[in-house]
Nucleic acid binder design. Structure first.
Lengths: 355, 355
DNA sequence: GTTTAGCACTCCTTCTATATGAGTGCTAAC
DNA sequence: GTTAGCACTCATATAGAAGGAGTGCTAAAC
């Protein structure tokens, strides 16, 4: 599934000032209109007085450098991946969000308190504002620690096990026990576990704890085993690469460049499978600021006609996840970059408050 | 969005034996091959020796009755919604699942213990076996009661509120309190609430409780208010029509009859919106056994080219939800009906065990 | 009365030919 | 270095013709 990118066939050498200006105009225009741009159109759009013929010369150079290409002989040119890359890296003039837009976003964030809900809100927001798909990695539990364990007695022989994890995530499960436990037994078991587990790296103390329990053979073991097994499963899941929240898949179906339903199906299946997308997001985890994968750059075939704009987000000064938007290669990078950037900050801030 | 169905234009009168036999063959064949069936093909498939011309006469009758139609003058015939309806109601010979298939399904169910997880498994199962979309309404909390409330003290001024609801669902949320509460205060508050709430219909006691609290003005109110607010939100959510788990959307993208990407987009958006689909599923809640909505019968435009096969499922002898598959009108009803039926039973059984 | 062969007719599909037009690359002149 | 001119390419659109699947109708056969 993963592939290595190919490089431009010609020298990626210095591009003359005018050629750059032209490329910029071409990419901007193509992003706006979605159709191959011809020399005549470009000549009109350009400020200076240059004939289409001159433009054609420059365009031929750009094509040699692998920055633009013609879908067929008598069409205009469209940017290649390398063209987009150069555009994004050195030609792009970003359009910062308006103050009111930022405020609108901030307001939306303000409304929700539940951490999980914040992620859902944020991904919906990303997808709505961008008209593409918004994706947010759920925050990684940086160190695998259990903060607190509680046992709550229910009716019959059922006990509710509550695990409070680092990062204030709470997990619970009802277990059926072989006998009824008194409240004091439950407290005792909880105290024991809390003392043994709290603050320590779970993976390190787990085995010691299990051994100890095997020796003492206490019959409240059943409860503790359940708790440990729960924690185990949780942390194992986390190690296996985490999870993400996705919104606005359907937005992608409205783009003409996504019309191939079979390709789209494969993309959606990749979304469901999650693995590939997570790997991609992981790559941005330790980048600072916004990162962009254009077309085949991502290395995943299903994303060949897509670009992904990502940004890591921080909670309490530490990067805990990545968020981004996914859409057709022909996307409004100038608007999306600040959008993703701002959303990452807002999400971090919102998650800080729920801690 | 909701519409009323139109009826057949001609008399839905008695259909002769041979005509029925022919219709059956036609529908079966069309479901298998997906292309309009002509008189010649039908004559060959039919056991008895009849010339295409004779068949044509019968087909003309069937068309007059609104049971089949021709996409255009010189194509064969395809079933109309009414044709499918008659087929499903009185002509269909269901293909019960093989014993080994049933066992395979049962095995899959056996593996999961968490109720929420069971729903996910079951919907995936439905979608995989049917190669269409599988949908499962989450079990309805029949009466809105809170079984138990617990407060767990966390570090700082944070308290974890745990709500155990009827149906063994557990909800939790961390709240920030204005001051630190002692363990005995927490127990006291929990006891108070448990006494007031447990087993009673929440909506009935809520207001009385709130009034009482306003009078006593105890400052542990903050905790109790939070708990009540949580319960309120939960039950309100339940009253607003519940929720469902969906799997295998992408399967639908592989069908030729779903090739229109814009229609598909609208369908997927309806899936996200949930409301319409929930309304539809609700209609099957009090039907006994499998129910089928063919094409426009559902009354929702987005489902015009789809059929939905549903069945309610029971926990402890009481219907708590509906499950089903959604796919193109041209679906293998004979296989799907038993599949949905069996899955409903298995789901009920699996949920019984997790109680 | 039912069945069937025959036949004209419809209309989708495919193929071919042709025109149109947008846009190019190249050359030669400015 | 720039540009006008021109031949060339190729996607797109349109029209006509051939082919074929399937129908409806009529009249004859059973």
């Amino acid at each position: 599934m993963k592939r290595t990118g190919e490089m431009s066939k010609s020298s990626p050498s210095a591009v003359s000032g005018r050629a750059q200006q032209l490329l910029k105009l071409l990419v901007e225009r193509y992003i706006r209109e979605g159709q191959p741009i011809g020399s005549r159109t470009l000549a009109r759009g350009l400020g200076m007085d240059l004939s289409p013929a001159s433009i054609r010369n420059v365009m031929a150079d750009l094509e040699d450098m692998g920055l633009i290409k013609a879908p067929h002989t008598s069409a205009g040119r469209i940017p290649t991946v390398q063209g987009y890359r150069l555009f994004v890296d050195s030609l792009l003039t970003v359009k910062p969000l308006e103050q009111c837009e930022v405020h609108a976003l901030r307001d939306k964030f303000g409304q929700t308190a539940d951490p999980q809900q914040v992620l859902v809100t944020a991904s919906s927001l990303l997808s709505e504002v961008s008209s593409m798909a918004g994706v947010i990695m759920v925050p990684r539990r940086e160190q695998a620690t259990v903060r607190q364990v509680e046992f709550v007695s229910l009716s019959d022989n059922r006990v509710l096990v509550v695990l409070v994890l680092s990062g204030h995530e709470v997990q619970n499960r009802v277990i059926h026990t072989s006998r009824r436990y008194s409240p004091s037994e439950l407290t005792q078991a909880a105290n024991y576990l809390n003392h043994a587990l709290s603050g320590k790296d779970f993976n390190k103390v787990r085995d010691a704890l299990l051994n100890e329990m095997r020796e003492t053979q206490e019959n409240i073991n059943q409860l503790m085993m359940a708790a440990i097994e729960m924690a185990n499963r949780t942390f194992q899941g986390a190690e296996e690469g985490g999870d993400y929240v996705l919104a606005g898949q359907t937005n992608l179906m409205a783009y003409a460049e996504m019309a191939d339903i079979e390709r789209l199906r494969l993309l959606f299946e990749a979304f469901n499978r999650k693995r590939d997308i997570l790997h991609l997001l992981d790559q941005s985890l330790h980048a600072q600021g916004v990162q962009i994968f254009i077309g085949e750059e991502s290395g995943y075939e299903v994303l060949d006609s897509c670009s992904v704009v990502t940004s890591p987000y921080e909670v309490e000064g530490e990067v805990v996840g990545v968020l981004g938007v996914i859409g057709p290669t022909r996307m409004a990078y100038d608007r999306l970059i600040p959008l993703v950037d701002v959303t990452a900050r807002l999400l971090g801030a919102a998650l800080n408050q729920t801690q």
